[in-house]
Design a protein around this nucleic acid. Structure first.
Length: 586
RNA sequence: GCGCUUGUAGCUCAAUUGGAUAGAGCAGUCCCGUCCUAAGGGAAAGGUUGGAGGUUCGAUUCCUCCCAAGCGUACCA
């Protein structure tokens, strides 16, 4: 049981009201560790004066041994200070629980599906995908740590016009000799006459990127080409052998390249849905929906009926009989439920799809697949580069994820090049610090905030930054490495010897699990970022003012060592949840 | 036009979902080097929370109306 629940239980024994939301961590340490506004909230309802009610609660609780102090402040706040013994005992918890410290069973028995990072397989991943990935992974990690069974999934939208453009681009413009060939059957018999990433000396996804751009401009500039490309989709649906062969070829290249980026980011999926495996089921859903009266025909197309949801209707099947994105999404949602029986389904998708997703959720509810309140669109703000306009692959001002990471890792490398480790180790450290810095700068911002990414400011490596947290961790480890290992020390200390710096750290460490719950509840990894930053700041002050290995009093020295050990453990647990890498030296 | 989202210090962002004196980092000013890594510590300064009303013990947060920006608005993804 965590501290908040303990306090709630105690307060409940005085006033029997459901007060889950009335106890929270104090914002300011001068106002105790926890604070409650229950008296003000219920004074009117109970026909009481708020301060009197608060005083009554305070009187009954102030002798409880988990508190060192309980006070009432006008207009009726109750502040709780945890006792020093209680805070010190918590270090034992941190050390014995280790990597599990902070785990809660908040989500026990429930399954969450979290769909994140579904890049279309027609181009290399750019920073538009980065926020999706970093946020999606963090929220999945957090949910898992909070006790949920988590399925990370993604959709591979591997069919349709965009893929056809890519196929066209490669077929027509990919010949080694530069001649333009449009005949797929010729390609099948002369595959060796086409460029490969190897002989073009490019990463496979970047290699294909250029063909996608060429293919789509050819498509939009030339009516005849457009007809041919659209026909490729039709042929593909008829499972035309040469077309499928080309399709597999181009997709493999893109997937291979995207995998490099995803691996570098430490991303993972438990399941990937491939559109070609379920798009036909979408068509079945259209028929079923018509039969059930969920859809109606309109001008030859099939449309929704979502008036009672208060959202506009949309086309489910075009008048030419082909299906749309939403059609597949409905079928896929059914498939997700059938396969994993999730209690809640999450879509980490950009804000431009808000309406489309609402429509999917509503239609799924009409089918009885899932209730709309089980569906969560985890939208996020746009990420742009400060000083440059909106990104567009056509304008050529996209920033690829790998280029950004290279840039940042290079910058870190410059900074550590004089440290005394091997070159390989330096490269590894630079990579870890760089990627972690990028992840932290994305996650510390609220999810829905549009952010302007600036190389100079966001990646300054100072102040509220990933490297600052990592540096704090390294400092902890450095202290710990200077003494011989005595892991089974009993943590005991005369509390009168403790300084303010130590008390503040103890008080911070004890609320870690509370932060996990808040971060999961609000889908807000930024709360964890703030917490870790505050913990690091407190540690830095402590480090500056309080000696550890130079401390003469042995009892105090041992206590401080376990405190440092605990700080490093919590930093590590927190950073791992954010997808940051741990380094022991920097 | 309608719908959704956003507007907080010079800049980039927080604010425990209605709480206490609106907090950080960067930039600018000033201080700290015999000492566990200075990617550090400390001090001061910086605000009419886009504007105007309203609701109540209490509003950056909720309601109404303006102003500004972004996104969406059925046969694109």
């Amino acid at each position: 049981m965590n501290i908040k629940q303990k306090i709630i239980e105690r307060v409940k024994s005085v006033v029997d009201i459901d007060l889950d939301i009335c106890v929270s961590i104090s914002e300011n340490s001068s106002r105790g560790d926890y604070t409650s506004n229950i008296a003000m909230r219920y004074a009117k309802q109970l026909n009481r004066n708020a301060v009197d009610l608060a005083n009554e609660i305070c009187e009954k609780l102030k002798n409880d041994k988990i508190f060192s102090k309980v006070e009432v402040v006008s207009p009726g706040f109750i502040n709780f200070w945890l006792s020093d013994e209680f805070l010190i005992d918590n270090l034992d918890e941190v050390i014995t629980q280790g990597n599990s410290y902070g785990r809660v069973d908040f989500g026990k028995g429930k399954t969450w599906l979290i769909e994140h990072t579904s890049p279309n397989p027609n181009k290399a991943m750019h920073i538009g995908h980065l926020r999706n990935n970093v946020f999606g992974m963090a929220i999945a990690n957090l949910a898992e740590f909070a006790g949920f069974k988590v399925i990370r999934d993604a959709v591979d939208n591997n069919r349709g016009i965009a893929i056809a453009k890519l196929m066209w681009g490669y077929l027509k413009f990919g010949r080694i000799d530069g001649n333009h060939i449009e005949d797929v059957t010729y390609w099948v018999d002369h595959v060796d006459e086409w460029l490969t990433p190897e002989n073009a000396n490019k990463r496979p996804d970047r290699f294909m990127d250029e063909f996608y751009i060429k293919g789509s401009s050819d498509f939009s500039e030339n009516k005849e080409v457009e007809i041919k490309v659209r026909n490729m989709v039709v042929l593909w649906e008829q499972e035309d052998k040469p077309i499928w062969k080309l399709w597999e070829k181009v997709l493999n290249y893109v997937h291979e390249g995207q995998a490099l980026t995803l691996q570098r980011l430490g991303s993972r999926w438990d399941h990937v849905w491939h559109e070609h495996e379920h798009y036909k089921e979408g068509k079945n859903m259209v028929e079923l929906g018509l039969k059930k009266g969920i859809f109606v025909k309109s001008d030859g197309a099939v449309i929704t009926q979502l008036k009672k949801y208060g959202i506009p209707d949309t086309v489910i099947e075009k008048s030419d009989g082909t299906s749309l994105y939403i059609t597949q999404d409905i079928a896929l949602t059914k498939k997700k439920i059938d396969t994993f029986k999730g209690d809640k389904l999450h879509w980490v998708v950009g804000p431009d799809q808000t309406l489309a997703l609402k429509q999917v959720f509503a239609v799924c509810e009409q089918f009885g697949i899932i209730n709309v309140d089980q569906c969560v669109h985890l939208s996020y703000g746009y990420m742009s580069i400060k000083g440059s306009g909106k990104m567009s692959s056509r304008l050529g001002n996209v920033l690829y994820i790998d280029d950004l990471l290279d840039l940042v890792a290079g910058k870190v490398f410059e900074q550590i090049k004089n440290t005394e480790v091997s070159l390989d180790e330096k490269k590894t450290i630079a990579e870890k610090i760089g990627i972690s810095a990028v992840k932290y700068s994305i996650l510390k911002v609220g999810r829905t905030t549009d952010m302007q990414f600036s190389f100079d400011e966001d990646l300054s490596f100072e102040g509220n930054s990933g490297p600052y947290l990592m540096y704090s961790y390294v400092r902890c480890k450095n202290i710990l490495s200077k003494i011989e290992n005595n892991s089974d020390i009993k943590i005991s200390v005369d509390k009168s010897k403790l300084s303010e710096y130590e008390i503040l750290l103890l008080r911070k460490l004890i609320v870690f699990d509370e932060v996990i719950v808040s971060a999961v509840n609000g889908y807000s990894p930024n709360l964890l970022c703030s917490y870790l930053f505050e913990l690091s700041k407190l540690f830095s002050s402590f480090y500056e003012k309080v000696p550890v290995i130079h401390e003469k009093d042995n009892e105090l020295k041992l206590f401080r060592l376990s405190l440092v050990d605990s700080v490093s453990q919590v930093l590590k647990n927190g950073m791992k949840l954010l997808g940051m890498e741990i380094v022991e030296k920097m």
